[in-house]
Design a binder for these strands. Structure first.
Lengths: 119, 119
DNA sequence: AATTTATTAAACCAAATGGTTTGACAATTG
DNA sequence: CAATTGTCAAACCATTTGGTTTAATAAATT
């Protein structure tokens, strides 16, 4: 079930790597919108916006409900949790290594004091 | 200072959207490595790996220290925190909207029971 | 039935991505 | 000094991306 999780992460991060797509997600947090509503404020043609929505769908960040000729989109931020977990993991690693670095620097300072400055 | 934060997010998410680059980050959590060490296990030429490292540097996720002919890389996961914060925000929104949806569904069920099934 | 509306599809284009190979160059080793 | 090592730069190539414009399709409106 977690098979090909890496591919999915590719899709999710790729989907998030464009300001228009993050903008779309942001607006979807206010609730469902159809494609016309979504594309209107974006400075690009309707087909371009539609493609961006497809990218978000491929990453499973957005789901679509067709009702007549209207395609309503809503955010599905579940996969964001996955990506967020991945990032948190690295944040932890980073903080640890940062502390190790701090410790090393402290040690160096102490050494310097003990032996005096010798450039 | 938080100016152009969006551009930076573009870079960070784009950097994370490739398995080779995530692999590099993963290995850097074990400590500094030079480019040769980093590229060796990747199934691609050295120049290709080197380019991936550059992408990580552009996103400020990796820093490089040159010592003689060796280029040592180390992870700088600070910007990951930024991205992680961004994601967490959406995770919250998602959970809230999920609860709202749940509430709506509950309401509909209740309505149905009260009025009986009328298709 | 004719028109408008919401969307997709297709064709096209420039630029970016991700890879290769080859050659250059500086630093280390013999 | 010669050979090796670690890295970059350049040239090249195929594919993907992100955008356009112009049809085509299907649903709603008049």
């Amino acid at each position: 079930m977690v098979l090909n999780a890496s591919r999915h992460l590719d899709d999710v991060f790729h989907a998030l790597a464009h300001p228009a797509r993050r903008e779309i997600l942001k607006r979807l947090t206010a609730g469902e919108q159809n494609l016309s509503e979504l594309s209107a404020p974006l400075k690009m043609s309707f087909p371009a916006a539609s493609k961006h929505v497809r990218v978000l769908e491929k990453a499973k960040l957005v789901r679509r409900r067709v009702e007549g000729r209207s395609h309503f989109c809503r955010i599905d931020a579940g996969p964001l949790g996955e990506a967020s977990d991945w990032l948190e993991n690295y944040r932890r690693h980073w903080e640890e290594s940062f502390q190790r670095l701090d410790a090393v620097l402290e040690q160096m300072k102490a050494e310097e004091k003990r032996h005096g400055s010798r450039n």
